[in-house]
Amino acid sequence: MKLTNLPKAEPALDPKFLKNLGIKSYDADNLYPQNVRNIVLNSKTGSGCLERYIDYIEGRGIASEPLAGFVVNLDGETLADLHAQVSADLGTNEGFAIHVNYDIDGGIVSLHHIPFENARIAEPDEEGNIRKVALHPDWTGQLTRNGKPVKITKDTVDYLDVFNPDPEIVLAQIQEAGGPQFYKGQIYYYSRQGFLIYPYARFHAVLSDMSTDEGLSNIMNRNVRNNFLPAGAFVRLKSQGAPYSGDDTDAQPQVDDADYAEDLAALQGDTEALKMLDITIESKEEMPEFINMQGNNYDKEFTATAAEIKDCIYAAFGQEGWLAIRNGKVGFSGTLVADVERDYAKRQIKTQKALSRCYKTLLQAWTTAQPLPAEPNDANLAIIPLVDTTTPTQK
């Protein structure tokens, strides 16, 4: 079969150029990172896998303790703090952004984590070069300050230069801004898809499965809360006349319809199930009829779907080993768990080395006015895996 005869797959991202803002949108609605975050957080399986993925990327931190504890900005954040924030963004979005500021000599004096969902890539210039990264605190337009929404306009968007530590370029940018007090700095934008290319999440292919996982949770919740708890229904004739009053000795004691309905409603729900309703009658003719009701349990109908969804999500994160242990397919032992953890830690080494190279690039341009406590080389900036990756025979 020819490839051209196959149905055309939709692109992972559908970016558009927003001329009013001078940026390329992150998907059609410019909210891809925000949409991904919401889908993952609402999926119990997806959020659990993502949390483990981020933990293994972060590992046990940077090898050099002096560098890990080095304060990288005026907020008192250390390089270890920055690493934790960057790891979370990289795990969720396959990218991260860091704000870089310089002194008058062109040396880096501070590094700040920028939430990746706040950064957008500007339009290329006439030569096809991207010079700016646009930052906004909330591209959804829902953020308010002093009770007023922060609109998304060129006036509320900050446009910062793309990272380039060349001292001559930095000094030229400072002069163009009107001096150090007006200079906004640069943005180090990292994407696993390539230089200044919007990345798509590693688990992009299973976002629909995560959404289904959320739906299955909702079904089970409604099934427990609303479905099979009513045991039956009382059927009775509507009360005749006014409710019984103690001053009317001739009247027959009757149950008020409104009170009766409220009493029955109070017995519904999982926390009120199986309680008894006391009804007093004067004669057998007034006895209400009870109809037994059998609710339906729909959980079993979705068992196969839930299992398949879970398989797909675990596979997208490369965590099939944990799923097999959880399902009891391979048994359970300390040695087996250690093997699974070691294998997953090895898979993150490539990503951790990429992070180390990024930190090395940034710290090699650090200002000489505030010397680093250790040499920013590969060994010092290596990220220690979360678990020991050497096999017992290698020790």
Rank of each mutant, 00 (worst) to 15 (best):
L277Q: 03
C358P: 01
A304I: 08
L362K: 08
A266P: 04
S211Y: 09
P7C: 04
D155H: 06
A242L: 07
L336E: 15
M276L: 13
Y183R: 11
F290P: 00
D14F: 04
A122K: 01
R357S: 08
V86Y: 06
P180S: 13
D27R: 02
R131K: 15
D75I: 02
I121D: 08
R37W: 07
Q186K: 09
Q240D: 06
K329Q: 15
R192Y: 11
K310F: 01
A316S: 02
N297P: 06
V157D: 14
T280C: 00
A307I: 07
N101I: 04
E168W: 01
M287P: 00
Y159K: 13
T335S: 13
Q193C: 13
D270T: 06
G46T: 10
T390H: 07
T361E: 12
R326T: 11
N30P: 00
F290W: 07
G76L: 05
D213M: 03
F70L: 04
L13G: 05
P167Y: 05
S245N: 05
S64P: 05
L336F: 13
D213P: 02
N292A: 09
Y198P: 01
E301N: 13
V86G: 03
E77C: 09
G141P: 03
D103H: 01
G59N: 04
G95L: 12
P180F: 07
D339N: 11
I291H: 02
Q181F: 13
L18G: 00
Y189F: 15
A233F: 12
N297M: 14
H99I: 06
K2C: 03
A316N: 00
A306Y: 04
F163Q: 12
Y344H: 08
D388P: 03
S87L: 06
F228N: 08
Y56R: 01
T280R: 01
R60F: 03
T391K: 08
L74E: 13
T156C: 08
K151A: 15
L362Q: 06
A379E: 15
N129S: 10
Y298R: 12
N42H: 14
K329W: 12
R37S: 12
D14Y: 06
T153F: 14
D270Q: 09
S43V: 12
T389E: 13
F302P: 09
I349L: 14
N73T: 05
Q268V: 04
V86C: 08
Q142N: 06
G215L: 13
K24E: 14
E375S: 04
F70C: 08
D247F: 04
K360L: 06
N146C: 08
P149E: 11
E262P: 00
C49L: 07
P385A: 09
K284P: 02
L41N: 14
D248E: 09
A369P: 00
A307E: 11
Q370F: 12
E341Q: 15
L355C: 02
Y298T: 15
L50N: 02
D155W: 07
K8R: 15
L6H: 05
G128R: 09
G331Q: 06
I23T: 07
G241M: 00
T212V: 07
D103C: 00
L363P: 05
V109D: 10
Q142R: 09
D103R: 01
